[in-house]
Amino acid sequence: MIVPSMAVQEIHNEVFEDIPNLRNKLTEYREDFRKTVLKASRYPLTKSYACKTKAMKNSFSIDFTAQKRSHWKSPILSIFGMYDRPEGKYAFSVSLDFNLITIYPPHFFQRFRERIAKNMTVSNENLIKDYFKNDWGFIAAVVNKDFESVYHNFEENNTDEKISFVAATSKGYCFGEKQGSVNIIKTIVSEEMLFGYQKHIFSELKHAFREANKDRYGFAV
């Protein structure tokens, strides 16, 4: 179980040690999703499953998505989870292919609430679920002076925060720090918040994100 005293690499190890305990559940959910897709008439279709592992007692949310009927054979799989610390609720997503996890602290979801969701009444848990709905990962670039300037423009009170990459996502643009096999996403800004030269410096990253999704999923986000 993830506990507040764990460092980020310990959380990574905990999650990946627990992944094998999801295998049987993934098979069960995949079969259920196949039946759901074949019965459906409208696409894309996403179905979520909640699972708490018996051995390590970690909670995971597993989303399957089919863009069209034939995708029942190879749905898009997304795995994420949540855990609590004294400062609030955290989330993590899992990238099985790259042995990575991405951690989203409470401050990130505060910014997502204010800047993207614009919903002050939804619970933190449902806000997190909303973020990961139709989340297609991200394409990142190393932070340069231009990106760093944009970050500090929108996060004036976090001048001491370390950031090492900027990323395009389906929800907006994120800034984060890479610590070994863990990405920590610090904040998010929307396309509408950018102006002038800021939009220009993000345009190449946005294009790369769309092209990557075309290659991986067959469509642009």
Rank of each mutant, 00 (worst) to 15 (best):
A7R: 15
Q9H: 15
E14D: 03
P20F: 04
N21L: 12
R23N: 13
N24W: 07
E31K: 14
T36N: 04
T53M: 03
D63A: 01
T65G: 01
Q67R: 09
H71I: 00
H71Y: 06
H71R: 06
W72D: 11
S74K: 15
F80S: 02
M82P: 01
M82R: 13
Y90G: 08
N99R: 07
P105L: 11
P105N: 09
H107E: 15
Q110R: 13
I116Q: 08
N119I: 05
T121C: 01
D130N: 13
Y131L: 05
Y131C: 03
K133W: 02
D135G: 01
A140P: 00
V142P: 02
V142L: 05
D146G: 02
V150K: 08
N158V: 00
T159R: 14
E161P: 01
K162M: 11
S170D: 10
K171N: 05
F175H: 07
E177A: 04
Q179D: 13
I184D: 07
E192D: 15
M193P: 11
L194P: 12
F195W: 06
G196Y: 05
G196N: 12
K199R: 15
F202T: 11
E204S: 15
K206L: 06
F209W: 06
E211H: 07
A212W: 01
R216S: 04
F219P: 02
V221F: 00
